[in-house]
Amino acid sequence: MFEARLLQGSLLKKVMEALKELLNEAAWDCSDAGIQLQAMDNSHVSLVSLNLRAEGFDKYRCDRNLSMGMNLGSMSKILKCASNEDIITIKAQDNADTVTFVFESPDQDKVSDYEMKLMNLDQEHLGIPETDYACTIRLPSSEFARICRDLSQFGESMVISCTKEGVRFSATGDIGTGNIKLAQSAKVDKEEEAVVIEMQEPVSLTFACRYLNSFTKATSLSKSVQLSMSPEVPLVVEYKIEDIGHVRYYLAPKIED
């Protein structure tokens, strides 16, 4: 028996938004530690890793590990039937071929349940090596979304360059060049509005704008986002999900041919 009840159901709705543009289907791996999902996009350029800890749920029960293959388009349709205020419970029997989503209104006067067929997915998990990144940049998530949107107009690729002074995002294309420089915040009233840079060595890498824009679908999950970079390895874009977990996106760089 698997059962996970989330008081703040809107978080699951937001998680869905953060996944569905990149992934058509994915396996939700459930254990007593919580729910994890790891999947590559169709082109195998990026990897999404979601972690929702058991402690973050109001009620969590997982008698035996199970992997639920879900069509994210279908799951998204179902989650659209939940109100933002609803409490959401995900339920499945052991070895079941369906999963049930239960939505309760806050005052319990409306309860809906939706059963969805599970899929058999050929799972391919990748081992992500522990990396000490040369640069980590924390910035407001809305700012990052704005930068990705603005620079996408100029070209397919964006260069992210980080030095001690700040971080520069650049894109070049037929109409010209765009450069956005963000300095490390000197003094901030609110932690989540800060730009904070930790740097061991300067790094400059090129990434496809298309994927970065897809990652920013997670913006509503967190006020800030963390970018981690090292020379010639994938970028990590991490959004924390309140007290329950995180979604991380890994994006392979573009390298000089």
Binding site: M40, H44, V45, S46, L47, E124, H125, L126, G127, I128, P129, S157, T206, A208, V233, P234, Y250, L251, A252, P253, K254, I255, E256, D257
Partner: peptide, 14 residues
């Protein structure tokens, strides 16, 4: 000219 790398060239299959 830059070439898009695949994520599988950095992370190994388990």
């Amino acid at each position: 000219k830059t070439k898009q790398k695949s994520i599988t060239s950095f992370f190994t299959r388990k």
